[in-house]
Design a protein around this nucleic acid. Sequence first.
RNA 1: GCCCAGGUGGCGAAAUUGGUAACCGCAAGACACUUAAAAUGUCUCGCUCGCAAGGGCUUGCCGGUUCGAGUCCGGCCCUGGGCACCA
Length: 826
Amino acid sequence: MPKYNPAKIEKKWQKYWEDEKLYQVSDSGHDKKNFMLLVEFPYPSGDLHIGHWYAFSVPDIYGRYLRMSGFNVMYPIGFDAFGLPAENAAIKNNIHPRDWTEKNIKNMSKQLRSMGAAFDWTREVSTIDPEYYKWTQWIFLQLYKAGLAYRAETLVNWCPKDMTVLANEQVIDGKCDRCGTAVEQRNLAQWMFKITSFADRLIEDMKDLDWPDSTKLAQKNWIGKSEGININYDVDGTDKQITVYTTRPDTNFGATFIVVAPDSQFVKENKDLFSNPEEIEKYLSESRKKSDLERIAEGRKKTGVSTGLYAVNNLTEKKMPIYVSDFVLASVGTGAVVGVPGHDIRDFEFAQEKGLEVIRVVVGKDGDDSPITKIEQVQEEDGTVVNSQFINGLNIHEATEKIKDYIEEKAWGKRAVNYRLHDWVLSRQRYWGVPIPMVHCADCGYQPVLEKELPIELPPLKDFMPTDDGRSPLAKAGKWLKAECPNCGKPAERETDTMDTFVDSSWYYMRYTDPDNKEEFASKENMAKWLPVPLYFGGAEHNTMHLLYSRFITKALNSQNLVEFSEPFLGRRNHGVILGPNNQKMSKSKGNVVDPDEQVEKFGADTVRMYFAFMGPYDQNYSWNFEGVVGVRRFLDRVWNFTNKLITDNKKLITEPVETRVAIHKAIKNIGEAVKSHKFNVGVSELMKCLNAIENSELSVLSYQSFVKLLAPFAPHIAEELWFRLQMQSRILDSQSESGQVPENYTSIHAEKWPEFDEALLLEESATLVIQVNGKFRDSIKVKRGLSEEEIKKIVLANEKVQKAIDNKEIKKFVYIQDKLTNIVV
RNA sequence: GCCCAGGUGGCGAAAUUGGUAACCGCAAGACACUUAAAAUGUCUCGCUCGCAAGGGCUUGCCGGUUCGAGUCCGGCCCUGGGCACCA
C-alpha cells in the first residue's frame, strides 16, 4: 500500500462523487425524512477564504452524519452575488461588475468542490440570475400589493463615499459598514418595507425557535419594544398641542420643561409661533450639519434654544418652557420629550445647562428626599413616589400604571408602544442590484410593473458609476428607462433604484427547494417537503440583519398565504471567526491571511476539515495554528498505516479481543452523541482515542468497517479510499484497479449506514468506585456492580489507604452512590 | 450606562451536567532507530515539597450551600461581543 497521499485520493473521489451524483437529493420517492441543512451562501468576493471553509466544512460533518443516520439530507449552496464590492472592484479594475462577479463564482465553485462537502450542485442558486431575481421582484410586488412596501420621504442614512442610502442595520457607530465613511443624514424619498408591522410577532415567535439565546436577545434588543404613554400638553396662548412619549409618567409631577428635536414635526409646523425664529433657524442648520459621528464625539454636552413657548402640565398646572435641542431625536417616540431633571440623567444635564428647576419626585430605599443637586443622585433603580399628590407613597411601577389610567380617563393622553426598529429602507442608488419593479407616471404616480413583464432585467450599462445626486446610475440607461404606465399606458419612467441585497438573500432558502421552477418562486408542494429549515449554520454578524430580514419576508409572504410557515429557520447555530496566527482578524493589510488552498495542498482537505472540527466548540473564535494542524494530519497518517498493517497481514482482520470491541462500540456511541449535539471537537477526540485503543490490536472486519464509517463524516476522502481498498482486499470487487478506476459494483461508504452499538457490551462487569475521605480522593477500586452499602462499607473500610486517612477517628457519616463513589466523613 | 457570552496547564481544550479536574491534541524534554537530520516509535509533562515511597496545593478573586463545587447561590475583578442621548 502506498503512502497516504491526499492530493491524489481527494481529487479522485471528488470526481467520483460528482459523476455518480452521490449528493443529489430528490424531493420525494424515498422513505427517508427530508432535512435541509442550510449554510449562509457566500458572497463571491474572489477567492474562498478560511472562513468559508470553517462555515461549510464543519456543518458538512453534521450533514454526512445525518445522511448515514437515515435522513435525506439536502446540503445546498449558491451565491449572494449582487452588491457593492463588485462595483467597487469593477471600477478599480476597469471591468464590468457582471464579468467580475461571474469570474469569481466560477473560481469559487471550483474551490468549494475541493472541500469534499456533500453539496447538491444541481440546486445551486445565484441572486444575479434573472431567473432568480425575477422572483425577488415578484416578492416585492406581492409586498407592495399587501401594503407592506411603500415609498416615503424620510431622513435616511447616506454614505457619501458609496453614494447610496443605507439601512439602519448597515450603519455601525455612525459609519458605513462597507467602507467606514461617516454617514450623513439626508431627506430622500425611498422604498421601504413595513417591517414594523411585524415587530410584535418578530419578538413573540422567537420563543419556539431553537436559536442561541444571544441571537434571540440581540433581535429583541434591536426591535426594542417599550411601553409608555403619549401625553398631549396644550401650548399656552395658542390652540396647538404638543405630544410627548414617555415610559415614566409616574415622574410627571416633577416635569419642568419640554424639549423637541430640531427636525421634529412640531418645529416644522410651528416656526411662526417661535419668539426668536432667527436663533432657532441657526440652531437647526447647525445641528443638521452635524453627522452622527460628530454628535457622538460631542459626548453628553447639551445645547439648545428656547422657543419662547410654554406647555401646560395638566397635573400641576405649571407652565413648562419648550426648548429645541439635538439630544432629542426626531425618529424616537414623538420627537419630543418631557424634561424630568430629577430622574433622568439627560434631562438633568440639560436643566443644569439652562438653569432649570429640578424637583425630586422619587426617593430611594434610604428615603433621602433632599433636593437633587448632583448627577449621581439622579440614578434611582427603584423607589417610592413623593411630591406627587395622589400617587405619593406608591412604588414607581404601581404609580406608572395608576397615572396612565388617570391620564387616559382625563383624555390627556393615550397609552402607546414604541419600537427602536424602523421600517426597512430598501432603495439603493447603485447599479449592481435588482431593479425595483415600479414605474413612475406623471399622471398616475408610482405603478407596479405587471407580473408578466418580470423580470425587469438590469440593463448592461457601461457607465455604472454612482452619483451624488441621490439617483441611481440606472437613470443614465436612456432606452431602458422608458416604459409605459401600467395603469394608463402613457409614456412613463422606470424606478432607477435597486434593492438592498438583503432582499435577495432573505428568501434564497425557499428557492433551493425548487430551483428551476419557471412558474413560481417555489412550488408549495416542494416547500412543504423541506421547509421550514430545521437547522441553519451561520455567523453571529447576521443576528440583526439577514436573520431578521428573512424572518420578516417569510412572515410577509405567510400573511399573503404564499408560504405555509411563518418562521424560516427553526434551528440556528452560530460559528465563530477564524483569526490569523497572530490572533487578529485576517486582512491583507495585516499580512496574516491564511490561504486555505495552500493548507489543503500541504495537508489535504481531510486534515483541514478535521482540524477545524477539532479546534474547539464551533461557536468560538480561534486563531489558525500552523503547528496544531499537524496533529490531525499525523492522526490520518496513523489511520492509513494502521489499515496497511491490517490489510497486508489479513489474518489480523478476523478476530479481536473484547477490549478492542468495547473500544469500537464506545466510539460509536460517543462520536454519534458528540456529532448529534454539534460537539465536533469531542467527536474528533473520541476518534483519536479509539485509534489509540485499537491501533496495536487485531480487529474484526466488522469493527474495522465501523471505524472507517465513524471517520467518514470528518474525513470523507480518506474514509472512501480505505473503504474502497478493503473491498478490493476482500475481493468483493472483481477488477483490481491501481489506475484509480472505480469498478461499477463499488458502493460508496457515504451511502452506508451509521454503525450501531451494543449497550450491553459497554456495561462493564465491574465498576470503578471512587473512595473519598472527607471529600478528598483517597483511592479508586474495582468492585462488582450492584453491591449493597453494607458490603461496600466492609470492603472500603478494610482498604489500607482509607484506614490511614481515617486514622482511627469516629465515622460520622458514610455516603454511598452505587457503583460510583463513597465518601467517609470523620 | 444597559444587555449577553466567557475566564480551567506553556497553548487549543475535555469533564458522564453536583461525584477521581486536566481526556484528546499542540508545544517542550529524554530515549530508541539513523553516519546525521527529518519522519516514526517509546516514555515524561498542572504547580509544589521529597533521592524515593508519599504528601500538600490548584479551575479569575472573596464568601456561602453541600458528605462532596470547575459545575449551584451571593458579592467583586478582568476579557470578548451587542445596544446606546430610545425618553
